[in-house]
């Protein structure tokens, strides 16, 4: 990826140099070339820009030189993925995408290629870092948006390093389109990329009444209100809206399994301490002997040892351990007595 960027940058630099050395009058032609090749893959695109720009601004002799200095493009081999553990920062696109998060917020993310930056710099006559980056947010509700017919728009100044932004559009049930652009020192807006269009969801009942299914307001409010638990009363539209908002704040799904929802929190807040006691009773006898503890048979390890572990409550525990030899001829009883109390 790095290599690719490097060679890309080099090519870009070269192109810039050439463009700069060319007469200013050719800028327009250069621009149109850039536009035409915009859709090609990155490196190819850069090369194409370079060669086309060369064609535009240079003499035939330079053109020959061009072919000399630039090797034929080799098929692009991306780096093997196993060399990478991280996702790429950029994909070599100039684009902005928006997503409606809720009735009032739209999320946007974008990417601008180096070539596009160069182009914008040239167009704006200022360096990238000196340009104000903005999101121009258009309300395009009910429009077949063409860039000029929005109902209204507003600008958001971006932090220079931002690659995403949450836009507070503030109004539900409207269509939005966002331009990523720069504002030149002279105040001109230059478009970098235009987003898709999203519709923010409605936050209240629709005012559109279906003729065929028309219901009277009061009847609807009764049904609308029922989910809030106030059946029977007609609570009024404003109150319903408020309750709906409150209700949406509540979490009424578990999100599935606890293990990925929340960690155990039984310890509560602040300092805490727990003390418990357990008693281990262990011993050994002939491997083929039969052993009972408090009258219940236990299983011996192959070597005749045994170990038992008991939660030890307060009080006295009398623990007769009885071993009987395999031939039932011999028997032994050992009885530990344990008293536990807690202060």
């Amino acid at each position: 990826m790095k290599k690719r960027n490097k060679s890309g940058k080099k090519a870009v630099k070269k192109a810039v140099k050439k463009v700069k050395t060319a007469a200013r009058t050719t800028t327009k032609r250069v621009r149109s070339v850039v536009k035409k090749v915009k859709k090609l893959p990155v490196l190819k695109r850069v090369r194409k820009v370079v060669s086309r720009v060369a064609q535009v601004v240079e003499s035939p002799r330079d053109k020959t030189e061009e072919t000399k200095y630039y090797p034929r493009p080799t098929p692009y081999l991306p780096p093997r993925q196993w060399e990478r553990e991280e996702l790429p920062d950029r994909y070599g696109d100039t684009r902005i995408v928006i997503m409606a998060r809720d009735p009032y917020w739209v999320f946007s993310y974008w990417e601008v290629t180096d070539e596009k930056r160069v182009q914008i710099e040239r167009e704006a006559g200022a360096s990238w870092n000196d340009l104000r980056k903005v999101l121009r947010v258009y309300d395009v509700t009910g429009k077949d948006f063409n860039g000029f017919n929005a109902n209204r728009y507003f600008d958001i100044d971006l932090h220079p390093s931002a690659v995403s932004w949450y836009i507070n559009v503030g109004v539900a049930d409207r269509s939005w389109c966002v331009d990523l652009g720069v504002i030149t020192p002279s105040g001109k807006f230059i478009l970098i990329a235009r987003s898709n269009i999203v519709l923010t969801p409605r936050d209240s009942a629709s005012d559109v009444i279906d003729e065929e299914w028309m219901s009277i307001e009061e009847e609807f409010l009764k049904l609308y209100g029922l989910w809030g638990g106030f059946a029977g009363a007609s609570p009024g539209k404003a109150r319903i809206k408020k309750i709906m908002k409150e209700r949406l704040q509540q979490e009424l799904s578990s999100g599935g399994l606890s293990s990925f929802v929340r960690p155990p929190n039984y310890k509560g807040r602040g300092f805490w301490m727990v003390v418990n006691t357990e008693l281990i009773v262990y011993g050994a006898t002939e491997p083929d002997a039969t052993v009972t503890v408090q009258g219940r048979p236990i299983r011996l390890n192959p070597d005749g040892t045994f170990s038992l572990r008991f939660a030890l409550p307060d009080g006295e525990q009398v623990i007769p351990v009885k071993g009987v030899s395999a031939d039932k001829e011999e028997e032994r009883v050992i009885t530990p007595i344990v008293r536990k109390s807690t202060k």
Partner: peptide
């Protein structure tokens, strides 16, 4: 969810029921 249909358009006559 509840509001998906309560807020549908045109307004659903029977709410979520």
């Amino acid at each position: 969810d509840t509001h998906g249909i309560l807020h549908a358009s045109p307004r659903p006559k029977y709410g979520v029921y």
